[in-house]
Design a binder for these strands. Structure first.
Length: 449
RNA sequence: CGGAGUAUAGCGCAGCCUGGUAGCGCACCUGCUUCGGGAGCAGGGGGUCGAGUGUUCGAAUCACUCUACUCCGACCA
């Protein structure tokens, strides 16, 4: 992408409405624009990151055996009356009427609808296990939206729903999502820590929130610091096999939000040098709820014994529009965002310091073309402006690698490579630059590990 | 939903107290000079001062009402 033809409205000053750093940086980097309280347009740069986050979620959901579909945003109230939630949900649900004065709603979640789909088509235990997911916009009329897209009213959510014949197989479905989530967050450059969460009236222990540690997190969390070093299940993980050892490994150590524990319990349960009291951003939640919807809505399959059984269900959410700011909270400095390669809007930027100078133009464009040819998602800063502004922009929008092309280096046939994260600089020959970048970038995509 | 604030150019702000031609920085446009960390000079464009009502000869400024947005709390992917 040539920057002169792109749409990147960066701001030099921080809009005053933004309180936390991710919100400030998303506005300054030209990623989002607020349209109303808790309602945002995703500008090209932000949308590109959001799509990379979504792609990773899809790949890992698919890998785990979940199957993607797409349900509507606007739902009929009738389904929600069946489950009893139309009256129970409260003012967070945005209620609408169509021209025939039928009650509708903008979906805050999709348990009812997916249960309806399931009961329409699935009749036999032989069709189980089944996990259906979609990635769709939701609306929750939050009392107080804040922190940019971290807590917006309209937000994108991946929600998966598992269907099983009995609780034992539902546990396996739960564990598949558990492992998929570990991998998903890791691939985005995050450590998503599973923490015991409230199971509500269902009970049991099959409810985990995944938290990313960050100073600005909304929840106080307590954990054993050894969790930060746990190995992530690899790409070779057999999702049809026994995942219980991985599940047990990750859940044997103490990790809970302040809603589930108190500091005294934590201090008593974890040895002193492993105690980590921090703050967390909830980026996912997996939850088993049994027959809560299948029972009132009549989602049954015929079992091997010929008798109908209400299916055991679970739901599994991830918030992509929350993950983007969460990644920024976890990875930034005073100059701007520092994107992990796997979700960076561009993997590298070629900065032409002297646009219009034949030598600089030729070298910069040549390198840019080669990068694109090599499959690198590259940006070319071909704007005719002073160097300082280009450097500042490249830092602000957080491109992992900056290839600086200017007359000073070109005299000797060299260009400079700057690592955004470390500030490290390398002087490379023009010929070596593309190869070096590729060698740095490809492993960090984390798409083969 | 309780409490507290804010609203003046795209962004950040001054002006308001003490009513009288709407300003500054950045951004934007034109020209020239520049060109390795947010360049310099010169010229220029852009405003229903959140909305409404009132007071007044005259309202960004005073009064009242409303709206939007932000922050703290309770609630949440």
């Amino acid at each position: 992408m040539r920057l002169s033809r792109y749409f990147l409205p960066t701001l030099r000053e921080t809009p005053k409405e933004a309180e936390i750093v991710s919100h400030q940086l998303m506005l300054r980097a030209g990623m989002i624009k607020q349209q109303a309280a808790g309602s945002y347009s995703w500008l090209p740069l932000g949308f590109k990151v959001l799509n990379k986050v979504v792609r990773i979620i899809e790949e890992e959901q698919n890998r785990s055996g979940a199957v993607q579909l797409l349900m509507p945003t606007v739902q009929s109230a009738d389904l929600w009356r069946e489950s009893g939630r139309y009256d129970a949900y409260g003012k967070e649900m945005l209620r609408l009427q169509d021209r025939h004065e039928r009650d509708m709603l903008f979906g805050p979640t999709n348990e009812e609808m997916i249960t309806d789909i399931f009961r329409t088509y699935v009749r036999s235990y032989k069709d189980l296990p089944l996990n259906l997911y979609h990635i769709q916009w939701k609306f929750r009329d939050e009392v107080r939206p804040r922190f940019g897209t971290m807590r917006s009213r309209e937000f994108l959510m991946k929600d998966a729903y598992s269907f099983d014949l009995d609780e034992a197989s539902a546990v396996k479905a739960f564990q598949r999502m558990f492992v998929a989530y570990l991998r998903t967050f890791y691939r985005m450059g995050l450590t998503g820590i599973p923490m015991r969460a409230d199971t509500g009236p269902i009970g049991g222990d099959l409810s985990y929130e995944f938290h990313v540690l960050a100073e600005t997190g909304e929840s106080a969390v307590f954990l054993d610091s050894d969790l930060l070093d746990k190995p992530i299940p690899s790409i070779d993980t057999d999702f049809r096999g026994d995942l219980d050892p991985i599940f047990k490994d990750w859940t044997s150590l103490f990790a809970a939000t302040d809603e589930m524990t108190d500091e005294a319990t934590f201090r008593a349960s974890v040895s002193g040098n492993k105690q980590l009291a921090a703050r967390g951003i909830e980026v996912g939640h997996i939850f088993f709820f049994g027959t809560k919807y299948s029972k009132p809505m009549g989602a049954k399959v015929t079992g091997p014994d010929g008798k109908d059984v209400e299916v055991q269900m679970g739901s599994y959410g991830i918030g992509p529009t929350r993950l983007v700011p969460a990644i920024i909270e976890a990875s930034h400095d005073e100059n701007g965002i520092i994107w992990p390669v796997s979700v960076a809007p561009f993997e590298a930027v070629v900065i032409n310091l002297k646009v219009g100078d034949a030598t600089s133009d030729k070298a910069a464009e040549g390198i840019y073309d080669d990068l694109v040819r090599e499959g690198i998602d590259a940006l070319y800063d071909d704007r005719d402006m002073a160097a300082g502004g280009k450097f500042a922009n490249a830092d602000l929008i957080g491109i992992p690698y900056h290839l600086i092309v200017g007359p000073r280096g070109l005299k000797d046939g060299t260009v400079e490579l700057k690592h955004r994260k470390t500030g490290e600089r390398e002087t490379l020959s023009i010929e070596a630059a593309v190869g070096r970048l590729k060698a740095l970038i490809v492993p960090q995509r984390r798409d083969t590990v």
